[in-house]
């Protein structure tokens, strides 16, 4: 079995699509770093000037009118529909600050997680594509049948292909994320603001990166299973896209209650260690006014672990069942 996995790993890295996929991921990572560098630069003289002018305008306006706004607001408060925040909260007009004007100040601690989230989806997408074509190509070339005349134990063949796709993506994801984190850290070190970068921040970042690696590896294996089930790379990709767009995108939008059971939200919760979504709570009030409020709900990290773990296990088991009984003609 170990021998078979090694062979599959070799095959994975010898494939042109794997190389192209990795090159694409690295290229996009490079672009992300470039964009980071652009926004991490300190403000130029003219940018500072602009921000200062804007700030002064808004500030003088605030000095002149804040009291008046506040009084007006307090008068309106009574007629605002329930439920509503306290009057102090409802009618606060804080003094504008210079930092809020011009291009936002760049800090490593604020930006890095978002970059990692983006990279996670990028890696997962590439992993699915590479994983699906890894097995899909065997169906389209017919070489899978030939392979089985050398190793007829179907479950071993299946397992080795999945493990090959899974393990093969670990170094890819690790290197990509290391490039991204290292590159961003370097950029920030050179031109940006590292003041808020604490040990805790690093710990969180590494945890995100770790989860992202696991995601990419598992998605690659699932891509292989999809192609195994459907006998075709394009069909596997089509199914995933169709599911995400139609089921999760369209129906998911209607079925608000189903949100915690959507794959996308759970993947989000997995990467971000918990995530939130909004539920509109609409009702007709006694006075006949139709009123909606948005409630923020959470999908916990634990929920996503269970959900995704079980979903992946079911798909892998289904693939094993089908492949072990399938006629290869």
């Amino acid at each position: 079995m170990i021998r078979l996995v090694k062979v599959e790993l070799k095959r994975l890295y010898a494939r042109r699509l794997t190389i192209i996929g990795i090159a694409g991921v690295v290229l996009i990572t490079g672009l992300m770093l470039f964009a980071t560098w652009r926004s991490a630069r300190p403000l130029s003289e003219s940018e500072l000037q602009q921000a200062q002018t804007q700030f002064e305008q808004v500030h003088s306006e605030w000095v002149r009118s804040a009291d008046e706004w506040k009084k007006q607001c307090e008068r309106d408060y009574a007629s605002a529909p329930d439920p509503k925040p306290s009057i102090a909260e409802y009618c606060s007009y804080p003094e504008p600050r210079l930092e809020d004007f011009g291009r936002p100040r760049f800090t490593f601690a604020d930006t890095m997680p978002d970059l990692l989230y983006g990279a996670s989806y990028l890696l997962a997408g590439a992993a699915f594509l590479i994983g699906a074509s890894f097995v899909g190509a065997e169906y389209s070339s017919g070489s899978l049948g030939n392979w089985l005349t050398f190793e007829p134990r179907r479950l071993r063949v299946y397992g080795s292909k999945l493990l090959g796709a899974l393990l093969g993506h670990v170094p890819v994801a690790v290197v990509t994320l290391a490039l991204l984190i290292g590159g961003t850290a370097l950029i920030v070190e050179l031109v940006g603001n590292t003041s808020t970068t604490s040990g805790k921040v690093w710990g969180d970042l590494l945890a995100i990166a770790g989860r992202s690696v696991v995601l990419a590896a598992v998605v690659a294996a699932l891509g292989s299973v999809f192609a195994m089930l459907l006998r075709h790379t394009a069909a596997a990709i089509g199914l995933l896209m169709g599911y995400l767009v139609l089921v999760e995108g369209v129906f998911g939008g209607f079925l608000i209650k189903a949100q915690p059971w959507l794959v996308r939200l759970n993947v989000d919760a997995w990467i971000k260690h918990g995530t939130t979504y909004w539920v509109d709570n609409c009702q007709t009030m006694p006075d006949g006014i139709y009123n909606c409020t948005s409630l923020e709900k959470t999908v916990s990290f634990g929920h996503s672990v269970w959900y995704l773990g079980i979903a992946a296990a079911v798909i892998v088991a289904l693939g094993a069942l089908v492949f072990s009984r399938r006629d290869l003609t």
Binding site: R11, R16, E138, G142, S143, N146, T149
Partner: peptide, 12 residues
């Protein structure tokens, strides 16, 4: 050792 119908290998 077997060859079923036509030979099938990875073309690339």
């Amino acid at each position: 050792g077997a060859i079923v119908e036509s030979p099938k290998f990875f073309p690339a």
